[in-house]
Design a protein around this nucleic acid. Structure first.
Length: 501
RNA sequence: GGUCCGUUCGUCUAGGGGUUAGGACACGUCCCUUUCACGGAUGAAACACGGGUUCGAUUCCCGUACGGACUACCA
């Protein structure tokens, strides 16, 4: 049987990186096994629906390069893949479950349940209390019929009887046991006719012939209910294998990484930017922060999973080769932004200039800079060894695109004196007279000239750097000069004369 | 509170009954470099605790502590 896995996010806003990681692991397993990766949108809670969220999820998968083979907006013959479009399917199956005696109607209103919770500590709707509540198990058939005829709102609940051990064989955690006496009678179909996660998930996983469920650890406690549902439908034979992923934790402090942590720690926790009319709701994603998707995927893959050995850098293809669910860790992994930055830096260093040019282009364009390939490739080669983010090419290396805005005057003053100044003046003319402006030649030539003038190369070279970049940080002086060209180089040298003198 | 899950350097982790417990990030020092980086070398840094089992436990078992998830007509 071929592997079929699904990523089933809820379109309630931005997808955070924990979700992206879940998608990635599903993708890796599917690709490794020659299986199918499916995207299903779980939008059964209409109160939490956020416009644009589904699109955001899909764009995020595109960005990361982990495209579904099947699913919402990707086609397939087991659709629709959006749960709100499958509403009738769920009510049909819920009714079937009632007929089979595995579920029942409950008429208790939310207010009544709240009252019970207020009155009884740890109130749980389960086998021990349902007899005294309002449902088709406690009421007489006539009463139930009457309530239905009167149009009384109802939900359908899973009938969980106590006294049984449910053993789940989790690929990551081994066997996990739950006693049904501690389980509640979960709502399967809500009063608005929409299913809850539990029902929709099991019905869809069955109908879509899912073989492996890889999802977050937050679902482990309800997995026993899910097993009971498969049994209630008589689907145990094709029940998928479960794997519950450890959570991604906050960089510092307690608890799992939350969407708010992005702002709190000044780092992205989402793949893409999220635009909004409300300024406070806008967020910067890894994309906008200047991360390469390949770097992000590598980082994410290793957050909670690691193959044997010491290798850290893996291409997507390599990840597909070596991935294994069994090697996923059991404990939560703290989100380490420093490590994420290191991966990005490594990927930028390793990328070829043409690839980088394409990544730099949007940033250059936004600043109104030159965006032709040759120029951007040159910027890439000059800066790639010294940047962390893609945005750094235009931020830190702005002086390659436009004139120096600001000089490190402390440094200029430290190096400048009348004697040096006069050597510098003659150097400008010497540079202006050069007919070969290639870096290697220029370096040899200029250094020779400086020495012939009886000056220390160190002093002059520092001023040259300051003239070209304004700062002590940056590429090799003669590489910059060659890249800038003779006319611009001479102009910048003259500018420094006026600034310093 | 209850249920379930977890615990190797600060962080991500490899390992596994007998090891100088390995790597990476971050950090310190040095080298390379007339800048900043890159790169190289090196240093500090861990098996939560207590009982077992065993000739021998960091590794297996049980407790304790601590951390986490869940405990909605949310997913």
């Amino acid at each position: 049987m071929s592997v079929r896995v699904r990523f089933a996010p809820s379109p309630t806003g931005t997808l955070h990186i924990g979700g992206l990681r879940t998608a990635l692991y599903n993708y890796l397993l599917a690709k490794q096994k020659g299986g199918t990766f499916i995207l299903r949108i779980e939008d059964t809670d209409r109160t939490r629906y956020v416009a644009g969220a589904e699109d955001y999820i899909i764009r995020s998968l595109h960005w990361a390069g982990i495209l579904p083979d099947e699913g919402q907006s990707f086609g397939g013959d087991k659709g629709p893949y959006r749960q709100s479009d499958r509403k009738e399917i769920y009510s049909k199956y819920a009714a079937e479950l009632v007929e089979r005696g595995a579920a029942y109607y409950a008429f208790d209103t939310p207010e009544e349940l709240d009252a019970h919770r207020a009155a009884t500590e740890n109130f749980t709707y389960n086998h021990s209390v349902r007899g005294s509540l309002s449902n088709s198990l406690s009421l007489s058939p006539d009463q139930v019929t009457a309530k239905m005829a009167a149009g009384t709102a109802y939900v359908i609940r899973l009938k969980v009887d106590g006294g049984e051990e449910i053993v789940i064989n989790d690929l990551i955690r081994g066997s996990v046991t739950f006693n049904t006496s501690e389980l509640d009678d979960k709502v399967l179909l809500k009063a608005d006719g929409m299913p809850t996660y539990h029902l929709a998930n099991i019905v869809d996983d069955h109908l879509m012939e899912i073989t492996h469920v890889i999802r977050g650890e937050e679902w482990l406690p309800s997995t026993a209910h899910h097993v009971l549902l498969y049994r209630g439908f008589g689907w145990e034979g094709t029940m998928p294998v479960f794997s519950h992923l450890p959570l991604i934790l906050k960089p510092v402090g307690n608890g799992k990484l939350s969407k708010r942590d992005g702002a709190k720690f000044g780092m992205p926790v989402f793949p893409l930017n999220w635009d909004s009319e409300v300024p406070e709701e806008r967020v910067t994603g890894f994309d906008g922060a200047g991360f390469m998707p390949e770097a992000m995927v590598n980082f994410l893959a290793l957050l909670g999973w690691h193959p044997s050995g010491d290798q850290e850098i893996f291409s997507l293809d390599e990840l597909i080769q070596v991935f294994s669910i069994e090697q996923i860790g059991k404990s939560g992994a703290r989100f380490d932004y420093e490590k994420a930055k290191w991966f990005n830096q490594k990927y930028i260093q390793a990328a070829d200039n043409l690839t980088l040019a394409a990544y730099i282009r949007p940033y250059a364009k936004a600043k109104g800079y030159r965006t032709d390939d040759n120029f951007l490739q040159m910027v890439a080669s000059l800066m790639k060894e010294r940047v962390t983010f893609l945005s750094d090419f235009v931020e830190q290396g702005y002086y390659i695109f436009e004139p120096v805005r600001e000089y490190d005057m402390d440094m200029v003053q430290k190096k400048w004196n009348p004697a040096i100044g006069s050597v510098f003046a003659t150097l400008i003319e010497y540079v202006e007279g050069q007919d070969n402006f290639e870096a290697v030649y220029l370096e040899e030539s200029v250094k020779g000239f400086i020495q012939s003038q009886g000056a220390k190369p160190g002093d002059i070279l520092t001023l040259l750097r300051l003239a070209l970049a304004g700062t002590m940080k940056g590429p090799a002086v003669f590489d910059m000069a060659a890249a800038l060209g003779q006319a611009e180089t001479v102009a910048r040298l003259r500018k420094l004369m006026s600034v310093a003198g």
